[in-house]
Structure formats: C-alpha cells, structure tokens
Design a protein around this nucleic acid. Structure first.
Length: 900
DNA sequence: GTAGGGTTAG
C-alpha cells in the first residue's frame, strides 16, 4: 500500500496531470479529519499521510495553507525530504511555520547549507525568533559553536528579541567553543539582566557551559566548577537535567567525591542521574563502586534504560566479567521480546565491544550484521575488535568497507598499522586522512610518532612534531612521551632530553622513555642518575623501568650496577620476570662472567626461555666460549628451530675457531630446516627518500659512484691506521677475497652514499636491520675522523655515534672475536674529578706493561668507593690490578693512584 | 514550527 501511494505521487509529480475537481469544502473537511489521524507521528501515520496526499492529487484537490504545512511536517518527520521540499517549493510565499519546519528538517539530517539557504531566502519581515532558534539548533547539532554565536549576533543586530530557547541554544553553542571564557561572563550577565535566569532550561545550559569550560581550561577548572555549583545551589526549581548536568560536570572534571556528594543530596533519583554517576566510576575504572550502584538500582526498583544497559555492558567488557555480560545480553533480548521494543544502536555497540574484548569476534560480527541501523561507532567497534584480535589483514579489509569514516576510524587504523610494525602504512594513512580533510587528534599523533620511532624516520617525526606545534594544541603526555621515544630511537638523544626537561608534568612513562633513550645510546650513567632522580621525586619504578635500567647497564657494560639494580627490584614490589633475567644474563655474558650467568640461570624460578639462551649464545660467540655456546645453541634450536640468528651465531662461532666442517654441518642443517638468513640491509634517508643498500649491492642506481668513493677513501683510511679485519668474513676463502667482501657490506655503502649526497657537515644517519659488523664499525670510526663528520648508525640492537675516530658504544657492543685476557698493570690518565667525586676517565688510553693495547670505553664514569678507590672496566673485563703512573698537571686523583 | 549535557568505538 505504501509503495502504491509513493508510485501515485511520483506519477503526478512527474506528469503534472490535472484531474476533475469536486466539491472543495467537503474535501477540505475530510482531509483535515484524516490528517488529524496522523498525529502523533509513527511509521503508520507516515504511510497513511502518503495515501491521503495521493488521494488529494487524484481528486484534484490542491493542498494549500495548513494542509501543505501539515504534509510538509509529516514528510519531514518521515525523512521524505524530497517530497517535503517539492511541496515547499510550490508555495509562492512560504510562511514562517513552513519555513521553520523545512529548516529544522534539513538541520536534523545534517544538511546545514540547504537549511541556511532556505533561512536566508526568507525575508526579515517573515522571520521570527522560533525560526532563528531552529537554525541555531541546527548549528549546535553540527557542533558548529562559532556559527551559532555568529547567528545570535546577527539576530540581535536585526532587532529580534531572544527567548529562553535562544539563550539555552547559544549557551550550548558556546560550550562547543572552548576559548569563549570572556563571552561566557558577558552572556551570563546578559541572561541575568534579561530576566531569563528564571528559566530552569537556561540555567541548566549555563551550568553546562561552566562545567564544559572547566573541562577544557586546565588552570581555572575548579573555580569555573564552583560557579556552576553556585548556580546549582541557588536554583529554586531543579529538573532532572539540572542534577544530571551537575553530577556529570564533576565526573568529567575528575571530582568523583563532589559528584557523589551531589548524587547523595537527592533521595529519589531519576535513572539518568544514576547513569551519570555510574559512568563516572566506569571512566575511572572504579568497577566495584560502579557495580555497587547497579546493585542499589536493582534494590530500589529503578528500571534500567538503554544508557544503564550500555554502562553495565561496558563494565563487563572492561573488567573481564564476560559471562555476566552474556547474562545481561540474554536479559536485553528477553526484554526486547517481551515489550516488543528494540534498543538503540548504542546497546548493540556495547555488545559488539563486549564480545570482541572476550575474543568472540564472530559473535560480535553477527550482532553487527543484524543491526538495523549501523552507525560509525558500530563500524569502529568491529574494526577495533579485529585490531585487538591481532589479525591486521581483516582490519584492513574491514576499514576499506567503512562507508563514513570519522576521526576515530582513522585513528584506530593508523595506530593498528603502527603497532603491527607497518610504520610506512601508518604514515601513508595519516597523509590520506589529512587529504580527506580530517585533522589528526592527539591519539593519532601519538600513534604516528610511534610509527616514526619504529621506522627511524627522523624527518617525518620532526615534521609531525612541527605540525603538533603549528596546529597550536597542547600535546598530551602520550604524544610527548612518544616524541621522547622517537627522538631517542632516531638518534637525537639531546632532543629527547630537551623535551623531557621542559615538560610541565611528567608521568612514569616519560621517565621510562627517557631512561630507555639514554640506555640505547650507551649513556648508562645518565640513565642511572635519572633513575635515582625518579626515585627522589617519588615516582614508583615499574617492570619497564627496571627492564630499561638493565638494558642501559648492558649497553654501557655496567656489570656491578646491573646486578645491584636487579637485586633492588623486590624492594619496589617488582618481581623479576624472564625478560629481566635475560637482560642480566646478557650483561654478564658480554662481560665474560659466565659463571655468574650460569648461577643466575640456575637460581631462576622458571625454565630458561629463548631470549635467555640467545643472550648466553651471543656472549659465548663474543668470548669464543665454544662449549657453553654449543649447549645454548642446541637449546635455542629446540625452542625456536626457525630462527635464523641461532644458526648464524653457531656457524660464525665454529668459523672463528677454524672448525670449517662444523660450519658446513650447521649450514646444511639450516638448509634442511628450510631456514633462510634474513638478508642484511642498511638504509639512509636523503631528501625525504629512503635509499636501501644490500650486501654487494648492484640494484641502487648510484651504487657505482658509492664503490668508487669507497675505493678512493681506502688508502687514506689505511694511512690513518685502518686495517681490514678479515675475521669478520666468516667464509673459508682467501684473504684478498675476504677483504673485497668486507668492502661491500651494506652499512659501508649507506654511509658512503650519505657522505656523497647529504649537505656538507650534515650528520649521516644510517639504519641497519641486523647488528653492525665489527670491521664496518672500525672502518666507520676511521671515516668519521678522515672526513670530520658525525655518523650515527642504528643497528638491530643500539645506536653507535661515530665522531672523530671514536664510537659511543666504546666497542662494547661490537661483535669481537677475540676475548680479552686479564692485565696486570696499566697506565691511566685521569681527566678530571667532578665535585660529586664522579671520576671521568679519558678514552683510548692505557698501555699494559705487556705492551698490549687496551681501550677504555670512550668516556667512562665511576664513583669512588668508601675508601676513595675507583674500579675501572675495559671491554667486558674488570681490572683488578693496575697502577696510576701519570696524570695531567692540575688534576687531582681521588685515591692517589691506588689500584683497586 | 525551535531544545536537552546520563551510553557505545582508541
């Protein structure tokens, strides 16, 4: 029937057919009575109105005046805007009621431009205050507070007198524009003067404005809340909205105590007031309190509405009460069946989230598919479900199907890419998002900056940092912490430190990020100092803090400190986990303390896992400990047979010992197992383009120029003392061939390309997927001296800052083949003693009596012990005996040169 | 013919 009516109307509209006229008066009475039946609006009344309209046309009755207005109204309410507009356009001079109906209808479906066009075409003499109010409401619905304020000013300029609808509308609009603090006061005064302050609705809107401004203004939030509360206390007539607004205001400003106090003031509370209080507890993860209120609602016989159900489903999803969540779902289905109603999409969205949180993505998808109206939140909930479940490809596929993406859709996908290690995709999507006119939010920035950290994309990271500043919004702590990590991981630890130092407030994540940055760059002592400061200001270290501290010690070779902090963990309520043990084992092994490592593994409360054996194996490789190394490798091969690194380490260890048969055996095993070595590659960013180089590269278009340049450098490097160390080519080939092989390593090619193509003086920043080769490390040290350029290499494990022939890692993290043995005597030059008795030793110094060259780490810091003695370490070896034979004039010695 | 702050997606 409905379709037939629509066809009839379409036919008449299309052909403009006229029909014989009948007696007008009788028809008018009949249609008036019939249209009366269309109130109140429902799906029935909408289709009935269509039938009446069709009959009017067929009978030749041409609706005018209130018939037209009524029909337009009904068509607008049933979202048949094209019919409504057709009728509206037939009116030669539409009255204000029809105009307001059309304006309001267009506004409610978000067609603001169309609404404004009709509004503007209406002469001033026709317009009235209701018409203005409708347009103002439209702007508010569209979150355009500035347009609301503008129209309000225009309205006053045109001499219209605002009513209480206008004031509450303008106050709502103002609440959308955070910077309007001064205007708030002005409007407050205007409301008092105009006498509109007697309307509860106006005062509700005013309270809302104050609490909303309190949310966005960090500094004066409490005083603005106090103004809101004064208004609240002074109101003689409070309605449901007054209570809800005040409680929600406190909740949004983190003041749950005041919220609860207002909540308790009222004995009989409407359901919305309960919901507001419960949502406060939920947003602060106070689940027992929220649950307590749900129980009280049941005891007091308060009927749950859809907001209550959404809240309780959210509680179940967030706190892991999945079976209870399912019971609520059953309860909702029963209620819908019993009352023949259908809950709105928000309840279904909460259900989707519940099921995806408990990893039931199929159930979540089923609910989604059955939803009659899918809003963007529904799509986003499923998208997040896929992201949380870890299969990224489903998320990508689903993302492209989402018809109307909002800020959050983009944010979720950008973060998903970043978390899955697909940094480039993440940044591409950020660009696309901006091209489509979306301004990235803080969450998106944090994710994109994280993507830059993982990629080592310093330029893009800097651009994002600049964009945050240019857009003028205060970056949140999560973005700032991401920036600290980004600068740290992109090699500019100073920039990370600058951000950290200038932050007005920091959290434990900021401290952890900064400690990690110092650690990765080998600034072990600074990392430890920062840790001590962290304790002084009362921030509790967590498991990540200790993980970073152990890494920092490991990168700087601080064995004793590492052990001390490891033993300190319990006193901060953190129990060491497998990864903490692995870091300490790594530290011990690097230092050649295999018995300590073994003891630690033996007393560990759980079975050693892969990272532990890997640490042991790497240490053995470093120090040529073949027997323990083989055992570790066997364990590792058993646990993760597909990991290429184990085969390579084992094979290299055999090669270093000249056991070529065993090398062949390991390589065959690797082939038999179908394991392929990850090809080494290095890359460098030049003029916003990433240039990748592989070993013995022939693919890069400019690689011949790179080889020529390296060849030219060769003799000059040798003059400085560089000698190719063929130990690093672990193939059983002739030495000349070995030397050639070394010169084609990817990191050398990338460094040379940077020197050729970057502006003079610019720091060369190279990234490598695997650990840097020892010979390349040595060569780059000499290159930095020869060309007087800073070169930074981030390898698979850490940063190496090369400057004037030295590296920040102190060669401690280079794959040494020869284990150092003990020394009896050495000469140390003391550079300076700081006020805090921190002794700084110069680099590249000390000559043993046995005429063996030894290197200290470039700058080694040490605290003298109680007796004023200082303990020094070289590459992994603690010096137990040495004597100070000389020192610079004017420098004092902490312990008069007494050996430790 | 004009309105409304308690819900859901990171």
């Amino acid at each position: 029937m409905r379709n037939a009516a629509r066809q009839a109307i379409n036919f008449v509209f299309a052909h403009n057919t006229s029909f014989p006229k009948v007696e007008l008066r009788a028809l008018a009475d009949r249609y008036t009575a019939q249209l009366q039946l269309c109130c109140p609006p429902s799906s029935f009344s909408h289709s009935y109105a269509q039938i009446i309209h069709a009959q009017m046309i067929i009978s030749g009755f041409s609706p005018r005046g209130h018939f037209l207005g009524r029909l337009i109204d009904i068509y607008c309410q049933s979202n048949n805007l094209s019919y409504a507009r057709h009728l509206f356009d037939k009116i030669p001079q539409p009255d204000v009621v029809a105009t307001t109906t059309m304006v309001s209808a267009y506004c409610s479906v978000g067609k603001l431009k169309e609404a404004r066009r009709i509004f503007d075409e209406t002469p001033l003499c026709i317009r009235d205050v209701v018409c203005y109010n409708a347009m103002i409401t439209g702007y508010n619905h569209n979150d355009d507070g500035a347009a609301t304020v503008e129209l309000f000013k225009e309205m006053l300029g045109n001499g219209f007198r605002p009513d209480h609808f206008t004031f509450s509308g303008v106050l709502s609009g103002l609440s959308l524009v955070a910077d309007y603090e001064r205007d708030c006061n002005q409007l407050h005064c205007a409301i008092v003067k105009s006498g509109m302050g007697c309307f509860t609705s106006v005062l509700n809107a005013l309270i809302f404005l104050y609490v909303k401004c309190a949310c966005s203004l960090f500094v004066e939030s409490s005083s603005l809340l106090d103004v809101g509360r004064e208004l609240f206390d002074g109101m003689r007539e409070k309605d449901e909205l007054t209570w809800t607004t005040m409680i929600a205001g406190y909740v949004r400003n983190d003041d749950l105590v005041s919220a609860q106090q207002v909540f308790d003031l009222r004995s009989e509370k409407p359901v919305a007031v309960w919901n507001a209080m419960i949502s406060g507890y939920l947003h602060h993860a106070l689940y027992p309190e929220a649950l307590g209120l749900f129980r009280r609602m049941i005891n007091e016989g308060i009927q749950f509405d859809e907001y209550t159900y959404t809240n309780i489903l959210s509680l179940c999803g967030d706190s892991g009460l999945f079976s209870q969540g399912k019971e609520i779902h059953a309860c909702i289905l029963r209620k819908e069946e019993k009352w023949g109603l259908e809950f709105s999409s928000s309840v279904n969205n909460a259900l989707i989230t519940l099921y995806s949180r408990c990893e039931k993505i199929r159930e979540a998808r089923h609910i989604f598919e059955e939803m009659p109206v899918k809003v963007t939140v529904s799509w986003n909930a499923i998208l997040s479900g896929y992201v949380n479940a870890g299969h990224i490809s489903d998320a990508i596929h689903f993302f492209h199907k989402i018809p109307e993406k909002n800020l959050l859709t983009w944010a979720v996908m950008i973060a998903a890419y970043a978390q899955s290690g697909l940094g480039e995709e993440s940044l591409k999507l950020l660009n696309q998002m901006r091209l489509e006119g979306f301004q990235p939010c803080d969450y998106t920035f944090a994710a994109a900056v994280t993507a830059c950290s993982n990629l080592g994309a310093l330029d893009q990271g800097r651009q994002l940092h600049a964009l945050v500043i240019r857009l003028g919004f205060e970056p949140s702590l999560s973005t700032t912490n991401a920036l600290i990590t980004m600068y740290g991981r992109c090699g500019i630890v100073e920039a990370a430190h600058l951000i950290f130092k200038t932050l007005p407030s920091v959290d434990s994540i900021s401290w952890n990020a900064m400690i990690a940055a110092f650690g990765q760059h080998g600034h072990g002592c600074q990392a430890l100092q920062l840790f001590e400061q962290m304790l002084e200001v009362g921030i509790k270290p967590d498991r990540i803090t200790f993980l970073n501290i152990l890494t920092a010690c490991s990168h700087a070779g601080l064995v004793d400190e590492g052990s001390r902090y490891f033993n300190l963990m319990h006193s901060y309520g953190v129990s060491p986990q497998d990864d903490h043990y692995a870091r300490l084992v790594d530290l011990f092994c690097r230092a050649g303390k295999f018995s300590d490592a073994r003891q630690l593994i033996e007393k560990m409360p759980f079975e050693p896992d892969a990272p532990m054996w890997e640490a042991l194996l790497s240490g053995c490789r470093l120090h040529g400990k073949l027997d323990i190394g083989i055992e570790a490798a066997e364990r590792l091969l058993h646990l993760v047979p597909q990991h290429d690194g184990t085969y390579i380490l084992l094979s290299n260890m055999y090669a270093a010992a000249g056991k070529w048969d065993d090398v062949t055996r390991v390589r065959k095993l690797m082939r038999d197992m179908g394991v392929k070595k990850e090809p080494a590659c290095s890359w460098i960013d030049v003029e916003n383009k990433v240039h990748i180089f592989f070993v013995d590269d022939t693919s890069h278009p400019e690689v011949q120029a790179v080889y020529a340049y390296l060849e030219k450098l060769g003799p000059r490097l040798r003059e400085l003392g560089y000698a190719p160390d063929t130990m690093y080519v672990l193939h059983d080939v002739e030495s000349e061939q070995k030397e050639y092989s070394l010169s084609t390593h990817s990191e050398k090619l990338a460094v040379a390309y940077g020197l050729l193509r970057l502006p003079i003086g610019a720091t060369v920043r190279v990234f490598k997927n695997l650990r840097i080769c020892g010979d390349c490390h040595n060569a780059i040290k000499y290159i930095s001296k020869l060309v007087q350029r800073q070169i930074v290499v981030r390898d698979g494990k850490r940063f190496h800052h090369f400057k004037n022939g030295e590296c920040s890692c102190g060669d401690f993290w280079v794959d040494h083949l020869e284990a150092m043995t003990s020394f009896s005597v050495a000469i140390i030059i003391i550079r300076r003693i700081t006020k805090t008795s921190l002794v700084e030793f110069s680099s590249s110094w000390s000559v043993g009596t046995q005429d063996i060259q030894v290197e200290l780490r470039p700058v080694q810091l040490a605290y003298p012990n109680e007796s004023g003695q200082v303990k020094l370490q070289t590459n992994g070896i603690t010096w137990n005996q040495f004597s100070i034979q000389a020192h610079q004039p004017g420098w004092k010695l902490g312990a008069e040169g007494v050996p430790v």
